[in-house]
């Protein structure tokens, strides 16, 4: 018990508890996010210079995933917080990605098989 109390006192002095990032880090992350967004806007013109559509889609999705990961890890503190929060978010996100992929596959299949096209 005594140990626990002293630990809490310690926490009161050092509010972030863990190695929470500094203002500097937050600003750096913002700069990176800004740059990625700029690259994304440029990447949206990949097909216009003759690159295949799939390469544009893959590039854009990878870049946005990178952005999302940065926001979640640093701004939402998952990198410094309990693994439980990460697990909770990952479970929802996993089901979400699965849902979108299966929906796209189902409708692509529907179109390709000509059954219920349009």
């Amino acid at each position: 018990m005594a140990e626990q109390r002293s630990h809490q006192a310690e926490l009161a002095h050092m509010p972030q508890g863990h190695a929470a990032p500094s203002t500097r880090t937050y600003i750096n992350i913002f700069v990176v996010l800004f740059v990625i967004t700029a690259i994304e806007v440029l990447a949206a013109y990949m097909t216009d210079i003759g690159l295949p559509l799939w390469s544009e889609i893959v590039t854009l999705i990878l870049l946005s995933v990178l952005k999302g990961v940065l926001v979640v890890m640093f701004y939402m503190h998952l990198r410094f917080d309990s693994r439980w929060f990460t697990a909770l978010f990952a479970a929802g996100f996993g089901i979400a990605v699965f849902m979108v992929i299966v929906f796209l596959l189902l409708w692509a299949y529907k179109r390709s098989s000509g059954g219920l096209v349009v």
Binding site: I95, F98, M99, V102, L106, Y109, K110, S113, G115, L116
Partner: peptide, 18 residues
């Protein structure tokens, strides 16, 4: 349980693979 939902829709014409 999140991967089986379309078994309620076999007869609506999703096609053999689905």
């Amino acid at each position: 349980g999140f991967t089986v939902w379309s078994h309620h829709m076999f007869a609506v014409g999703m096609g053999p693979w689905a």
